[in-house]
Design a protein around this nucleic acid. Structure first.
Lengths: 113, 113
DNA sequence: AATAGTGCTTCAGTGCCATAATACAGCGCG
DNA sequence: CGCGCTGTATTATGGCACTGAAGCACTATT
């Protein structure tokens, strides 16, 4: 139903966000460089840069030109809070409507976990 | 988080599917014509045709050329079953993973309904 | 100064989406 | 038949997002 062909930079963005929330990218620590992550993921450096870009616009990642990027203090908590809110206010209502429409019951949902 | 810029023909497709499942488009009944729906939705007739096309390919909608399209018998049930399976196998696992990552609790989810 | 590592800017190419203008093909009805 | 309604095919065009390649700007290290 949904997108099986999601743009690469969005996949990377989600993946990076998850790594920050999970603490795999610690705060105040360096992030993988654009080129390094690009090589690791088999993507173009520019595409990776585009993924990083949204984080620095939100102040979650700070840039030292010529040096690299690091995770801002409190980024994990801020990110989790932000995603929590958008999830509850935007995605979850659609999901529940969908569940209701399809006539799915709680035990079917739990069985699929 | 998700796509706010979903292609028009996909939006129409989802919308039509929902109408069939909910019974707003009754089985054995005529669907709105390509041109009519296009005018109503402010879209191009070709775009609407593209949305319809996937349904006839799946046998959910049958075409009488020169007359119009109607919903096939059993289409609602077939459609619901198909969406049910893809939802459980593909979307739901991602959703539960997301819920877990964000640390959302059951009462928070229920409160948002 | 030289080098190598950063992120960033610019230009170009590709493909999908949406639209438009026609034209064609089948059906029903007066 | 003639008219008006259906869906369909063709071709062309504009726009937009994604991806990519080369080069520029900055910093740290030697």
């Amino acid at each position: 139903m949904s997108n099986q062909t999601k743009p690469v930079y969005l996949k990377l963005r989600d993946q990076i966000a998850a790594a920050i929330i999970d603490g795999r990218y610690q705060e105040e620590e360096m992030l993988p460089s654009v080129r390094a992550l690009a090589a690791e993921q088999g993507a173009n450096p520019l595409t990776v840069a585009k993924a990083y870009q949204q984080f620095q616009a939100d102040g979650l990642v700070e840039v030292q030109r010529g040096v690299g990027m690091y995770v801002a203090r409190g980024a994990a908590e801020k990110l989790r809070k932000r995603e929590k809110e958008t999830f509850l206010s935007q995605e979850w209502p659609e999901i529940t409507a969908r569940i209701k429409r399809l006539g799915l019951k709680p035990d079917e949902l739990l069985a699929a976990v």
